[in-house]
């Protein structure tokens, strides 16, 4: 059990510290890298909880895809760090207000009895926990009880994709394009012209 506890404390400590560094690092690229570290440690905690499928999905989706795009955008931006710090005091009250609202809401949730486990389980369909691996358990509820919600979330993502494509797609006028199949069917007959050149004459 010591090994288990040690790994738990390492994962949670690194997760919390790197989460703090995300908001305090001066360089935005460092922030994103700390965010990735935090994700990876969260997935380590998932593994310790026995939720191995969620852990792997967290790494594949958030770290492998979403955070790569974050990093891409942040790296490409030419950010003026001094200017970024200027508005800090100006926005501080608004940010603090948001934080306070969030903490109060969470406090209300935890303090009232409606958030106890029993009351939640009345509304939520959960799979029977037994020896079956949790990939299968997730599939059992996701594709039966929550099938319509699953499909709707897929549709929402599709709409988002179509929306972003329509926003960025524009007619760029005269762009030279290759017709790949016609390129592939080029042979020496229609690509090369052979000429016999007499000595000292040229073409």
């Amino acid at each position: 059990m010591y090994l288990y506890s040690i790994t738990f404390y390492i994962f949670s400590l690194v997760a919390v510290l790197s989460a703090l560094m995300v908001i305090s690092a001066r360089n935005p690229v460092h922030s994103v890298l700390f965010l990735i570290l935090s994700f990876v440690n969260a997935s380590g905690l998932f593994v310790l909880l026995g939720a191995e499928f969620l852990a792997m999905i967290l790494v594949v989706v958030y770290v492998g895809a979403v955070a790569v795009l974050f990093l891409f955008v942040v790296m490409m931006l030419d950010i003026n760090f001094v200017k970024l710090r200027e508005g800090f005091l100006q926005y501080l009250p608004f940010g603090a207000l948001l934080g306070v609202v969030l903490i109060v809401e969470l406090g209300i949730l935890f303090l009232t009895k409606s958030f106890s486990e029993n009351s939640l389980s009345r509304f939520v369909q959960s799979p029977q926990i037994n020896e079956v691996e949790n990939t299968k358990l997730i599939g059992q509820v996701l594709y039966t009880d929550y099938f319509y919600l699953f499909q709707i979330s897929g549709l929402i993502l599709l709409v988002a994709m179509v929306g972003s494509i329509t926003l960025t797609l524009r007619d760029r006028g005269q762009v030279k394009r290759q017709n790949i199949s016609s390129q592939n069917f080029i042979d020496e007959k229609n690509a090369i012209e052979k000429k016999k050149i007499k000595l000292g004459e040229g073409i």
Partner: peptide
Amino acid sequence: DINVGIMYLFAVSSLGVYGIIMAGW
């Protein structure tokens, strides 16, 4: 011998891009 072995491999190989992006930046 974990239940999600292939997911683990997929996750690890999808992380490989970070070494390269970090080096380039």
